[in-house]
Simulated assay, not measured.
Amino acid sequence: MIVKAIPTNIITGFLGVGKTSLIKQLLKTKPEGETWAVLVNEFGEVGIDAGLMDASNSGVQIREVAGGCMCCAAGVPTQVAINQLIARAKPDRLLIEPTGLGHPNEIIKVLSAPHYQNVISLRSTLCLIDARKLRDERYRGHDNFIQQLHVADVIVTTKTDLYPEFEAAQGGQLAEELTQYLNELQLSDTSVMEHSALQGISTSLLESLKLPRRQATKASGSQSAVFKPVNSSSSLLRHTADTLGLQGIFAESASEQGFRFDARGLVRKHNQGEGCFSCGWVFEPMQEFDFDKLMQFISAQTQGHSALLRLKAVMITSDGIAGINWSDGDMALTELDDSLDSRLEMIATQEINWDEVEQGLIGCLVA
């Protein structure tokens, strides 16, 4: 039974800005005895972020909604996922990560609806930004990039350890460019914080999670009336979800969805929207990859496709389970404790020869 409203934060930001990495660090700050829940929405269809978070802490529950539907106007898949996660985890805090290609205003509308008033206490929305992207018009002029900043209560500059020229405290050039850009968007009053993965979560960033959602009322608007309470166990809702093609949201996580593997022991899934294309592969658990060949393959993909925006993977290899997270030249490689299977996904601004990529990936399997 929900005794008090659950403090809830939305952590948004464009592709590859470090949302998953930040949430991993936040989970490490969880007070002992508390349960935190994370709801992750991915643009792709195979679900990888939960695996990259590698939450072995028994006080953490992670749920994925694949296919970028969290930020859609329908509201049903989001409500079902939230209701089921709350019922299962009974969390002391809920963190929600929308897809980097989505606009979080729709999820804010859902969470601001009257029937969640005594269940969810909507706190500050954090928008993460890599200040280097301001020099790239693909980001600077992208509607979702701009809209994500507009819904933010706190803007967090990430990956600053990778570009020391930011120098926020000393007024570095990139810091000045960010200030100018925010002024252009009429966001000069929005709080800006700096975050470096090397330094960990600062006290000020933790405290910012407790701030109230300034725009909660404004975000809900007149449309909040269309969102009605839903019971995730009702046959009517399940029928509605089946009609909408949303069956995947009823799985405990994307990692637990049933995939129909072909004779080679793999499945391939596509998605497209917001000017981007994704392709993801899932391999049966008994399939193992040669680590060196896999890294050579990934290097070839990240260097050989100018349209590639993101590549992420959780792979069972001959050297252990590897978590791989690449974006625009930045590569993070981590060793994970466990994985149900191997998954790799790529997101690009145009179609890539996926058949060719697939053959290269299969070539990395241990014979």
Results as ranks from 00 to 15, higher is better:
Ile6Gln: 00
Ile11Pro: 02
Thr12His: 04
Gly13Pro: 07
Thr20Glu: 07
Glu32Ile: 12
Gly33Lys: 07
Trp36Tyr: 12
Val38Leu: 04
Val38His: 04
Val40Tyr: 01
Asn41Ala: 11
Phe43Val: 04
Val46Gly: 01
Ala50Asp: 12
Leu52Ser: 10
Met53His: 03
Glu64Gly: 08
Cys71Tyr: 12
Cys71Gln: 09
Cys72Asp: 09
Gly75Asp: 01
Gln79Lys: 06
Gln84His: 04
Ile86Val: 14
Arg93Thr: 07
Leu94Ile: 08
Gly100Gln: 09
Gly102Asp: 06
Gly102Trp: 03
His103Met: 00
Val110Arg: 02
Ala113Cys: 08
Tyr116Ala: 03
Asn118Thr: 13
Val119Pro: 00
Ser121Asp: 15
Arg123Asp: 05
Arg123Val: 05
Thr125Arg: 07
Asp130His: 04
Asp130Val: 03
Lys133Pro: 00
Leu134Gln: 06
Arg135Thr: 15
Arg138Leu: 14
Tyr139Ser: 07
Tyr139Asp: 06
His142Ser: 10
His150Thr: 13
Thr158Lys: 05
Lys159Asn: 05
Thr160Tyr: 02
Thr160Pro: 07
Leu162Val: 05
Leu162Phe: 09
Glu167Lys: 12
Glu167Asp: 15
Ala169Met: 11
Ala169Arg: 14
Gln170His: 10
Leu185Tyr: 04
Thr190Glu: 08
Ser191Lys: 14
Ala197Asp: 06
Gln199Trp: 01
Gly200Leu: 05
Gly200Pro: 11
Ser204Glu: 15
Pro212Met: 11
Ala216Gln: 15
Val226Pro: 02
Pro229His: 08
Leu236Cys: 01
Glu252Ala: 14
Ser253Phe: 04
Phe259Ile: 08
Arg260Ser: 13
Phe261Gly: 02
Leu266Asp: 00
Val267Glu: 11
His270Trp: 00
Glu274Val: 11
Gly275Gln: 03
Gly275Asn: 11
Gly275Val: 13
Phe283Gly: 03
Glu284Ser: 12
Leu294Thr: 09
Phe297Val: 05
Ile298Arg: 08
Ser299Glu: 15
Ser299Gly: 13
Gly304Phe: 09
Gly304Glu: 06
His305Cys: 08
Leu308Gly: 02
Leu309Trp: 11
Leu309Met: 12
Arg310Asp: 11
Met315His: 05
Gly320Arg: 01
Ala322Val: 14
Met331Arg: 11
Glu345Asn: 05
Ile352Cys: 11
Ile352Met: 15
Ile352Gln: 05
Trp354Ala: 15
Trp354Met: 02
Glu356Phe: 01
Gly360Ala: 11
